[in-house]
Write a protein that binds this DNA or RNA. Structure first.
Length: 375
RNA sequence: GCGCCAUUGGUGAAGUGGUUAACACGCUGGUUUGUGGCACCAGUAUGCAAGGGUUCGAUCCCCUUAUGACGCC
Protein backbone atom coordinates (compact mmCIF):
# COMPACT_ATOMS: atom_id res chain seq x y z
CA UNK A 1 0.00 0.00 0.00
CA UNK A 2 1.25 3.46 -0.79
CA UNK A 3 -1.40 5.79 0.42
CA UNK A 4 -5.15 5.92 0.13
CA UNK A 5 -7.57 8.65 0.91
CA UNK A 6 -11.15 8.00 1.78
CA UNK A 7 -13.61 10.83 2.18
CA UNK A 8 -15.95 10.22 5.10
CA UNK A 9 -18.07 13.32 5.03
CA UNK A 10 -18.44 16.65 3.34
CA UNK A 11 -19.58 19.53 5.49
CA UNK A 12 -22.83 20.78 4.02
CA UNK A 13 -22.12 24.51 4.19
CA UNK A 14 -18.49 24.49 3.12
CA UNK A 15 -15.96 22.54 1.09
CA UNK A 16 -14.54 21.04 4.26
CA UNK A 17 -14.17 17.30 4.35
CA UNK A 18 -13.62 14.61 6.87
CA UNK A 19 -11.43 11.79 5.69
CA UNK A 20 -8.98 9.06 6.42
CA UNK A 21 -5.50 8.57 5.05
CA UNK A 22 -4.38 4.98 4.96
CA UNK A 23 -0.64 4.59 5.10
CA UNK A 24 1.91 1.89 5.72
CA UNK A 25 1.98 3.01 9.33
CA UNK A 26 -1.69 3.19 10.07
CA UNK A 27 -4.83 5.11 9.34
CA UNK A 28 -5.01 8.80 10.14
CA UNK A 29 -7.90 11.24 10.25
CA UNK A 30 -8.02 14.43 8.27
CA UNK A 31 -7.93 17.38 8.50
CA UNK A 32 -4.43 16.90 9.82
CA UNK A 33 -1.50 19.07 10.80
CA UNK A 34 1.99 17.76 10.09
CA UNK A 35 4.92 18.92 12.24
CA UNK A 36 8.09 19.72 10.36
CA UNK A 37 11.26 17.75 11.01
CA UNK A 38 13.53 19.21 8.39
CA UNK A 39 16.72 17.38 9.26
CA UNK A 40 15.09 14.11 10.23
CA UNK A 41 14.04 15.50 13.58
CA UNK A 42 11.20 17.68 14.70
CA UNK A 43 13.56 20.04 16.41
CA UNK A 44 14.13 19.04 20.04
CA UNK A 45 11.33 16.45 20.19
CA UNK A 46 11.69 12.70 20.48
CA UNK A 47 9.42 10.36 18.53
CA UNK A 48 7.70 9.43 21.79
CA UNK A 49 6.82 13.06 22.33
CA UNK A 50 5.43 13.21 18.82
CA UNK A 51 3.22 10.18 19.40
CA UNK A 52 2.15 11.83 22.62
CA UNK A 53 0.79 14.90 20.84
CA UNK A 54 -0.97 12.57 18.36
CA UNK A 55 1.12 13.56 15.42
CA UNK A 56 0.47 11.57 12.27
CA UNK A 57 2.55 12.35 9.24
CA UNK A 58 5.68 14.39 9.84
CA UNK A 59 7.89 16.16 7.32
CA UNK A 60 11.52 15.78 6.49
CA UNK A 61 13.48 17.64 3.87
CA UNK A 62 15.20 16.27 0.81
CA UNK A 63 17.61 19.16 0.39
CA UNK A 64 18.85 19.09 3.96
CA UNK A 65 19.21 15.33 4.15
CA UNK A 66 20.88 15.23 0.77
CA UNK A 67 23.59 17.57 2.05
CA UNK A 68 23.85 15.98 5.46
CA UNK A 69 24.19 13.13 6.10
CA UNK A 70 23.48 12.19 2.45
CA UNK A 71 20.83 9.93 1.01
CA UNK A 72 23.18 6.95 0.82
CA UNK A 73 23.88 7.06 4.51
CA UNK A 74 20.21 7.27 5.40
CA UNK A 75 19.60 4.36 3.05
CA UNK A 76 22.43 2.40 4.63
CA UNK A 77 20.92 3.04 8.04
CA UNK A 78 17.71 1.46 6.91
CA UNK A 79 15.77 4.41 5.59
CA UNK A 80 14.34 7.47 7.26
CA UNK A 81 12.02 5.63 9.67
CA UNK A 82 14.77 3.48 11.08
CA UNK A 83 17.24 6.35 10.94
CA UNK A 84 15.15 8.70 13.06
CA UNK A 85 13.20 6.00 14.85
CA UNK A 86 9.82 7.41 13.86
CA UNK A 87 7.21 4.71 13.44
CA UNK A 88 4.72 6.90 11.67
CA UNK A 89 4.33 8.20 8.14
CA UNK A 90 6.95 10.60 6.82
CA UNK A 91 6.59 13.02 3.95
CA UNK A 92 9.69 14.43 2.31
CA UNK A 93 9.59 17.83 0.74
CA UNK A 94 11.35 17.87 -2.62
CA UNK A 95 13.82 20.64 -1.89
CA UNK A 96 12.21 22.93 -4.42
CA UNK A 97 11.40 25.52 -1.80
CA UNK A 98 14.94 25.61 -0.38
CA UNK A 99 16.65 25.55 -3.71
CA UNK A 100 14.55 28.38 -5.04
CA UNK A 101 15.54 30.60 -2.17
CA UNK A 102 19.20 29.66 -2.54
CA UNK A 103 19.33 30.32 -6.28
CA UNK A 104 20.85 33.79 -6.49
CA UNK A 105 20.04 34.67 -10.04
CA UNK A 106 16.61 33.25 -10.81
CA UNK A 107 16.89 33.82 -14.55
CA UNK A 108 20.23 32.12 -14.89
CA UNK A 109 20.22 29.55 -12.12
CA UNK A 110 16.80 28.06 -12.73
CA UNK A 111 17.03 26.18 -16.00
CA UNK A 112 14.89 23.70 -17.81
CA UNK A 113 17.19 20.94 -16.67
CA UNK A 114 17.23 21.91 -12.98
CA UNK A 115 18.40 24.48 -10.47
CA UNK A 116 21.95 25.67 -9.84
CA UNK A 117 22.63 26.98 -6.38
CA UNK A 118 25.22 27.15 -3.65
CA UNK A 119 25.14 24.99 -0.56
CA UNK A 120 24.25 27.03 2.51
CA UNK A 121 26.82 24.98 4.45
CA UNK A 122 30.03 25.39 2.47
CA UNK A 123 29.04 27.36 -0.59
CA UNK A 124 29.87 24.61 -3.04
CA UNK A 125 28.01 24.69 -6.32
CA UNK A 126 25.19 22.20 -6.49
CA UNK A 127 22.67 21.23 -9.08
CA UNK A 128 19.32 19.69 -8.28
CA UNK A 129 16.99 18.24 -10.88
CA UNK A 130 13.53 16.69 -10.68
CA UNK A 131 15.06 13.26 -11.25
CA UNK A 132 17.71 13.76 -8.62
CA UNK A 133 15.16 14.94 -6.06
CA UNK A 134 12.96 11.90 -6.58
CA UNK A 135 15.95 9.59 -6.52
CA UNK A 136 17.03 11.00 -3.19
CA UNK A 137 13.52 10.67 -1.82
CA UNK A 138 13.35 7.09 -3.03
CA UNK A 139 16.50 6.35 -1.09
CA UNK A 140 15.32 8.19 1.99
CA UNK A 141 12.32 5.86 1.81
CA UNK A 142 9.73 8.32 3.03
CA UNK A 143 6.07 7.39 2.68
CA UNK A 144 5.23 10.38 0.56
CA UNK A 145 7.59 12.05 -1.90
CA UNK A 146 6.90 15.49 -3.30
CA UNK A 147 7.45 16.47 -6.91
CA UNK A 148 10.31 18.88 -7.46
CA UNK A 149 8.72 22.23 -8.22
CA UNK A 150 9.64 25.85 -8.51
CA UNK A 151 8.20 27.91 -5.71
CA UNK A 152 8.04 31.51 -6.86
CA UNK A 153 6.67 34.27 -4.62
CA UNK A 154 3.06 35.31 -5.10
CA UNK A 155 4.32 38.74 -6.06
CA UNK A 156 6.05 37.39 -9.18
CA UNK A 157 4.61 38.63 -12.46
CA UNK A 158 1.83 36.78 -14.24
CA UNK A 159 4.24 35.93 -17.05
CA UNK A 160 6.81 34.57 -14.66
CA UNK A 161 4.26 32.50 -12.79
CA UNK A 162 2.87 31.12 -16.04
CA UNK A 163 6.23 30.04 -17.39
CA UNK A 164 7.24 28.77 -14.01
CA UNK A 165 4.21 26.55 -13.56
CA UNK A 166 4.63 25.17 -17.08
CA UNK A 167 8.14 24.17 -16.18
CA UNK A 168 6.95 22.74 -12.87
CA UNK A 169 4.54 20.57 -14.88
CA UNK A 170 7.36 19.29 -17.06
CA UNK A 171 9.42 18.64 -13.95
CA UNK A 172 6.49 16.77 -12.39
CA UNK A 173 6.33 14.45 -15.41
CA UNK A 174 10.06 13.85 -15.31
CA UNK A 175 9.95 13.11 -11.61
CA UNK A 176 7.09 10.69 -11.94
CA UNK A 177 8.94 8.87 -14.69
CA UNK A 178 11.90 8.03 -12.49
CA UNK A 179 9.93 7.44 -9.31
CA UNK A 180 10.80 3.87 -8.39
CA UNK A 181 9.93 3.21 -4.75
CA UNK A 182 6.87 0.93 -4.61
CA UNK A 183 6.25 1.76 -0.95
CA UNK A 184 6.24 5.48 -1.55
CA UNK A 185 3.44 7.74 -2.73
CA UNK A 186 4.19 10.68 -4.99
CA UNK A 187 2.36 14.01 -4.80
CA UNK A 188 2.06 16.70 -7.45
CA UNK A 189 2.11 20.41 -6.71
CA UNK A 190 -0.23 23.07 -8.03
CA UNK A 191 1.30 26.50 -8.65
CA UNK A 192 0.03 29.67 -10.30
CA UNK A 193 0.23 32.38 -7.65
CA UNK A 194 -2.96 34.31 -6.98
CA UNK A 195 -4.33 33.95 -10.51
CA UNK A 196 -7.50 31.98 -11.10
CA UNK A 197 -6.77 30.83 -14.63
CA UNK A 198 -3.22 29.79 -13.74
CA UNK A 199 -4.32 27.82 -10.70
CA UNK A 200 -7.04 26.10 -12.68
CA UNK A 201 -4.70 25.25 -15.49
CA UNK A 202 -1.96 24.06 -13.17
CA UNK A 203 -4.38 21.92 -11.17
CA UNK A 204 -5.94 20.30 -14.23
CA UNK A 205 -2.62 19.57 -15.89
CA UNK A 206 -1.11 18.20 -12.70
CA UNK A 207 -4.10 15.91 -12.22
CA UNK A 208 -3.69 14.74 -15.81
CA UNK A 209 -0.22 13.52 -15.00
CA UNK A 210 -1.72 11.55 -12.13
CA UNK A 211 -0.46 11.54 -8.56
CA UNK A 212 -1.34 9.91 -5.26
CA UNK A 213 -2.16 13.28 -3.77
CA UNK A 214 -2.05 16.96 -4.67
CA UNK A 215 -0.67 19.93 -2.92
CA UNK A 216 -1.19 23.61 -3.31
CA UNK A 217 2.17 25.31 -3.34
CA UNK A 218 3.49 28.81 -3.58
CA UNK A 219 1.33 30.10 -0.75
CA UNK A 220 2.27 31.76 2.56
CA UNK A 221 5.30 33.06 0.73
CA UNK A 222 6.91 36.41 0.62
CA UNK A 223 4.44 39.24 0.94
CA UNK A 224 1.38 37.31 -0.16
CA UNK A 225 -1.82 38.65 1.38
CA UNK A 226 -4.29 36.43 3.20
CA UNK A 227 -6.80 37.13 0.49
CA UNK A 228 -4.43 35.95 -2.22
CA UNK A 229 -3.71 32.82 -0.27
CA UNK A 230 -7.37 31.99 0.24
CA UNK A 231 -8.01 32.67 -3.43
CA UNK A 232 -5.16 30.40 -4.46
CA UNK A 233 -6.85 27.60 -2.54
CA UNK A 234 -10.29 28.34 -3.91
CA UNK A 235 -9.01 28.45 -7.47
CA UNK A 236 -7.17 25.13 -7.15
CA UNK A 237 -9.44 22.86 -5.13
CA UNK A 238 -12.34 22.42 -7.59
CA UNK A 239 -10.03 20.74 -10.09
CA UNK A 240 -8.52 18.25 -7.68
CA UNK A 241 -10.01 14.76 -7.43
CA UNK A 242 -12.33 14.01 -4.55
CA UNK A 243 -10.60 10.78 -3.67
CA UNK A 244 -7.08 12.17 -3.27
CA UNK A 245 -5.43 14.02 -0.42
CA UNK A 246 -5.17 17.78 -0.72
CA UNK A 247 -2.19 19.31 0.96
CA UNK A 248 -1.67 23.02 1.55
CA UNK A 249 2.06 23.50 1.83
CA UNK A 250 3.63 25.59 4.53
CA UNK A 251 0.54 26.94 6.21
CA UNK A 252 0.28 26.91 9.97
CA UNK A 253 -1.33 30.04 11.38
CA UNK A 254 -4.37 28.71 13.22
CA UNK A 255 -6.81 30.91 11.36
CA UNK A 256 -5.22 30.01 8.03
CA UNK A 257 -5.64 26.33 8.83
CA UNK A 258 -9.31 26.86 9.57
CA UNK A 259 -9.81 28.84 6.37
CA UNK A 260 -7.95 26.17 4.45
CA UNK A 261 -10.12 23.40 5.85
CA UNK A 262 -13.24 25.38 5.00
CA UNK A 263 -12.00 25.52 1.42
CA UNK A 264 -11.37 21.79 1.22
CA UNK A 265 -7.79 21.24 2.35
CA UNK A 266 -6.99 17.98 4.15
CA UNK A 267 -3.44 18.36 5.42
CA UNK A 268 -1.07 21.16 6.39
CA UNK A 269 2.52 21.50 7.47
CA UNK A 270 4.33 24.41 9.00
CA UNK A 271 7.51 25.32 10.86
CA UNK A 272 5.69 27.96 12.83
CA UNK A 273 4.82 25.98 15.99
CA UNK A 274 8.41 24.87 16.53
CA UNK A 275 10.08 28.05 15.34
CA UNK A 276 8.05 30.45 17.44
CA UNK A 277 8.44 28.06 20.37
CA UNK A 278 12.21 28.43 20.20
CA UNK A 279 11.71 32.17 20.27
CA UNK A 280 9.46 31.96 23.28
CA UNK A 281 6.00 32.23 21.80
CA UNK A 282 2.98 30.02 22.23
CA UNK A 283 -0.35 29.59 20.50
CA UNK A 284 -3.36 29.84 22.76
CA UNK A 285 -7.08 30.12 22.15
CA UNK A 286 -6.76 33.75 23.17
CA UNK A 287 -4.09 34.46 20.60
CA UNK A 288 -0.35 34.12 20.42
CA UNK A 289 1.48 34.93 23.63
CA UNK A 290 5.15 35.78 24.16
CA UNK A 291 6.63 34.09 27.20
CA UNK A 292 9.48 36.60 27.10
CA UNK A 293 7.08 39.24 28.31
CA UNK A 294 7.72 40.53 31.80
CA UNK A 295 4.10 40.07 32.79
CA UNK A 296 4.64 36.30 32.99
CA UNK A 297 7.48 36.59 35.49
CA UNK A 298 5.33 35.40 38.38
CA UNK A 299 2.56 33.68 36.42
CA UNK A 300 1.87 30.29 37.95
CA UNK A 301 -0.77 29.28 35.41
CA UNK A 302 -0.08 26.91 32.50
CA UNK A 303 0.66 28.25 29.01
CA UNK A 304 -2.94 27.60 28.11
CA UNK A 305 -5.68 26.89 30.59
CA UNK A 306 -7.39 23.61 29.75
CA UNK A 307 -4.76 22.38 27.29
CA UNK A 308 -4.14 18.64 27.45
CA UNK A 309 -0.48 18.72 26.45
CA UNK A 310 2.39 17.52 28.61
CA UNK A 311 3.73 21.05 29.02
CA UNK A 312 0.46 22.53 30.22
CA UNK A 313 -0.20 19.62 32.53
CA UNK A 314 3.12 20.01 34.33
CA UNK A 315 4.58 23.49 34.01
CA UNK A 316 3.86 27.10 34.96
CA UNK A 317 4.42 30.08 32.71
CA UNK A 318 6.91 31.57 35.16
CA UNK A 319 9.19 28.54 34.81
CA UNK A 320 8.97 28.42 31.03
CA UNK A 321 9.67 32.14 30.87
CA UNK A 322 12.70 31.55 33.05
CA UNK A 323 13.93 28.83 30.68
CA UNK A 324 13.33 30.99 27.61
CA UNK A 325 14.94 34.13 28.96
CA UNK A 326 17.98 32.22 30.18
CA UNK A 327 18.33 30.41 26.87
CA UNK A 328 17.75 26.95 28.28
CA UNK A 329 16.79 24.52 25.51
CA UNK A 330 14.06 22.91 27.58
CA UNK A 331 12.01 26.08 27.19
CA UNK A 332 11.80 25.75 23.43
CA UNK A 333 11.14 22.06 23.78
CA UNK A 334 8.22 22.49 26.15
CA UNK A 335 6.72 25.23 23.98
CA UNK A 336 7.21 23.11 20.85
CA UNK A 337 5.23 20.32 22.48
CA UNK A 338 2.48 22.74 23.37
CA UNK A 339 2.37 24.50 20.00
CA UNK A 340 2.28 21.29 17.99
CA UNK A 341 -0.35 19.87 20.26
CA UNK A 342 -2.30 23.11 19.90
CA UNK A 343 -2.46 22.81 16.12
CA UNK A 344 -3.23 19.11 16.23
CA UNK A 345 -5.96 19.76 18.78
CA UNK A 346 -7.24 22.46 16.46
CA UNK A 347 -7.60 19.90 13.67
CA UNK A 348 -9.36 17.54 16.08
CA UNK A 349 -11.85 20.26 16.90
CA UNK A 350 -12.26 21.04 13.22
CA UNK A 351 -13.10 17.40 12.56
CA UNK A 352 -15.71 17.54 15.26
CA UNK A 353 -17.16 20.74 13.84
CA UNK A 354 -17.31 19.22 10.37
CA UNK A 355 -19.01 16.15 11.80
CA UNK A 356 -21.63 18.39 13.36
CA UNK A 357 -21.95 20.68 10.35
CA UNK A 358 -20.92 23.62 12.51
CA UNK A 359 -17.65 24.61 10.94
CA UNK A 360 -18.47 28.22 10.13
CA UNK A 361 -19.78 28.82 13.63
CA UNK A 362 -16.64 27.22 15.01
CA UNK A 363 -14.50 29.50 12.86
CA UNK A 364 -16.34 32.65 13.92
CA UNK A 365 -16.07 31.72 17.58
CA UNK A 366 -12.39 30.81 17.22
CA UNK A 367 -11.46 34.04 15.49
CA UNK A 368 -13.41 36.11 17.98
CA UNK A 369 -11.56 34.55 20.88
CA UNK A 370 -8.18 34.35 19.15
CA UNK A 371 -8.20 38.05 18.38
CA UNK A 372 -9.88 39.13 21.60
CA UNK A 373 -6.70 40.22 23.34
CA UNK A 374 -5.30 42.01 20.35
CA UNK A 375 -5.73 45.74 20.12
C1' G B 1 48.59 61.82 57.11
C1' C B 2 50.93 62.99 52.29
C1' G B 3 51.27 61.98 46.99
C1' C B 4 49.12 60.11 42.58
C1' C B 5 45.15 58.21 39.53
C1' A B 6 40.25 57.41 38.87
C1' U B 7 34.61 58.21 39.28
C1' U B 8 30.08 58.15 32.31
C1' G B 9 23.09 54.12 31.89
C1' G B 10 21.10 48.01 35.05
C1' U B 11 26.27 46.06 33.59
C1' G B 12 31.10 46.22 30.64
C1' A B 13 32.57 50.46 28.77
C1' A B 14 33.96 54.42 24.17
C1' G B 15 34.13 59.67 23.81
C1' U B 16 34.39 65.28 22.80
C1' G B 17 34.91 72.55 25.09
C1' G B 18 29.68 73.48 20.82
C1' U B 19 23.06 70.65 17.54
C1' U B 20 20.66 63.76 18.69
C1' A B 21 26.90 60.70 24.67
C1' A B 22 29.62 55.13 20.38
C1' C B 23 29.40 50.00 20.87
C1' A B 24 28.15 45.49 23.48
C1' C B 25 25.32 42.88 27.09
C1' G B 26 20.95 43.34 29.80
C1' C B 27 16.11 45.05 29.91
C1' U B 28 11.13 46.27 27.28
C1' G B 29 8.20 45.27 23.09
C1' G B 30 7.44 43.18 18.20
C1' U B 31 8.19 39.76 13.89
C1' U B 32 8.48 34.65 12.26
C1' U B 33 3.72 30.24 7.35
C1' G B 34 6.86 23.44 1.98
C1' U B 35 13.04 26.08 8.80
C1' G B 36 20.47 27.64 5.58
C1' G B 37 21.15 31.02 9.71
C1' C B 38 17.63 29.90 18.37
C1' A B 39 17.33 34.76 14.03
C1' C B 40 15.61 39.50 12.78
C1' C B 41 13.46 44.52 13.89
C1' A B 42 12.48 48.49 17.26
C1' G B 43 12.87 51.07 22.02
C1' U B 44 15.94 51.78 26.11
C1' A B 45 21.57 57.70 30.10
C1' U B 46 17.26 65.35 29.02
C1' G B 47 22.47 62.99 31.36
C1' C B 48 28.51 61.81 32.27
C1' A B 49 29.97 61.13 41.49
C1' A B 50 28.10 65.95 44.39
C1' G B 51 28.65 71.21 44.83
C1' G B 52 30.93 75.59 43.10
C1' G B 53 33.87 78.26 39.40
C1' U B 54 36.16 79.67 34.32
C1' U B 55 33.66 80.24 29.47
C1' C B 56 29.10 82.83 24.80
C1' G B 57 28.87 77.44 25.90
C1' A B 58 31.35 72.14 29.93
C1' U B 59 30.51 65.37 30.73
C1' C B 60 35.28 67.05 28.81
C1' C B 61 39.29 72.99 32.01
C1' C B 62 39.87 74.72 37.53
C1' C B 63 38.58 74.28 42.95
C1' U B 64 36.22 71.75 47.11
C1' U B 65 33.90 67.44 49.00
C1' A B 66 32.70 62.17 48.72
C1' U B 67 34.02 57.31 47.25
C1' G B 68 37.61 53.79 45.35
C1' A B 69 42.64 51.90 43.67
C1' C B 70 47.87 52.41 44.06
C1' G B 71 52.53 54.43 46.30
C1' C B 72 55.21 56.61 50.60
C1' C B 73 55.61 57.61 55.92
Amino acid sequence: MKIEYEKIKQESHTQARLGKIKTNYGVYDTPMFMPVGTRATVKSLSPEELYDVSSGIILANTYHLWLRPGADIVEKCGGLHRFMNYQGPILTDSGGYQVFSLAKNKEKDITEEGVHFKSHIDGQNLFLTPEKSIEIQNKLDSDIAMSFDECPPASASYEYLKNSLERTLRWAKRGKKVHANPNQALFGIVQGGPYEDLRKYSAMETVKIGFDGYSIGGVANDDESKEDMYHAIEYSIPYLPEDKVRYLMGVGEPIDIIEGVIRGVDIFDCVLPTRIARHGQAFTKNGKINLNNAKYKEDVSPVEEGCDCYTCKHYQKAYIRHLITTGEVLGGRLLSIHNIRFLIRLTEELREAIQKDQLLAYRDQFIKQYQSEKK
